[in-house]
């Protein structure tokens, strides 16, 4: 295929009692890309994510994954097909250890998940692989800690390790750097870059430094519809996009140099919220 799309939506619509949250979205995610989904608060990004992973049922439209229509499938089936998502609020199993968190993702492949008469010692064979994954996200030292005791940034890293454990073809990350200090942001960004080899990533992200730094393609959503799509430089220069973001924040978007070769390092003004795209409505997304 010339146009190798891993995920494609056509005419995707989600209505909540008359309110149209997602309106006729045609999204094409190219295989191997890091595709970012941005937009002001309430633009429908998370709803879109929930539709793609079937945590919400679309009102109309079609979703195709590798050419197969998955519009009517159950969320766990989608996950088993290789589309694994993360959540906006860190999705960990708080009262299990860090190692157990990752192991739960690995466990399904053993096929013993319904065996209530077996000892869980059988799961120890997964520990090596789990430790590898934890090492990859720099959490090996925390393996035996109860997850709830870890700092927030580490939980997000653990979430990525858990998602990676399934070796998904397509990873959906819902604001992977939200609520992080810039040290953590940098680490997670590197991590996403690193794990994007051999897989496709679709992410919702507010932090423009991250978007500019690692994404190949960008889709801007506003009021439930696609406003613009393309490489960062192109989208950032689009007057419609600038208008949607308005004022100084829009200039913040346009001022970031869009150079794919630019190392994703600290930028001037890092730490304050300059690089972050938020709509004028305020509040968290």
């Amino acid at each position: 295929m010339a146009e190798d799309c891993i995920l494609e939506t056509s005419g995707l619509v989600k209505e909540f009692r008359g309110f149209v949250a997602v309106n006729d979205v045609n999204l094409k995610v190219r295989r191997g890309h890091i595709h970012a989904l941005i937009g002001p608060n309430g633009a429908g990004k998370t709803t879109c994510f929930n539709l793609l992973t079937k945590f919400l049922e679309p009102t109309r439209g079609q979703i195709r994954f590798n050419g197969i229509d998955i519009t009517r499938e159950a969320p766990q089936k989608i996950a088993r097909r290789g589309i694994v998502r993360s959540f906006q609020i860190s999705a960990v199993f708080p009262h299990l250890t860090v190692l157990e968190n990752v192991r739960i993702a690995l466990q399904r492949k053993l096929g013993t998940s319904f065996h209530f008469w077996k000892s869980d010692r059988g799961l120890n064979q997964l520990n090596d692989r789990a430790m590898e994954l934890l090492t990859a996200v720099d959490l090996a030292g925390y393996a035996d800690m109860v997850t709830v005791e870890m700092p927030y940034g580490r939980k997000r890293a653990l979430e990525i390790a858990t998602t990676l454990a399934l070796d998904p073809e397509l990873m959906l990350l819902d604001e992977p750097t939200q609520g992080m200090g810039h040290e953590d942001v940098h680490r997670v960004m590197e991590l996403i870059k690193q794990v994007s080899a051999n897989r496709t990533i679709l992410m919702v992200e507010h932090n423009m430094k991250v978007v500019a730094g690692i994404s190949d393609t960008l889709t801007v959503l506003a009021r439930g519809s696609v406003l613009a799509e393309g490489p960062y430089a192109e989208v950032a220069a689009n007057p419609l996009v600038i208008e949607a973001y308005m004022g100084t924040e829009a200039s913040g978007l346009a001022s970031i140099p869009a150079n794919d070769d630019r190392p994703p390092g600290p930028l001037p003004g890092e730490g304050d919220d300059h690089g972050s795209l938020r709509s004028n409505s305020g509040g968290a997304g």
């Binding site: 945590f55 766990q76 694994v84 959540f87 999705a91 199993f93």
Partner: peptide, 10 residues
């Protein structure tokens, strides 16, 4: 602990 997460893990 987290039902949506368990679903999202398949």
């Amino acid at each position: 602990e987290n039902e949506p997460r368990a679903i999202s893990l398949g």
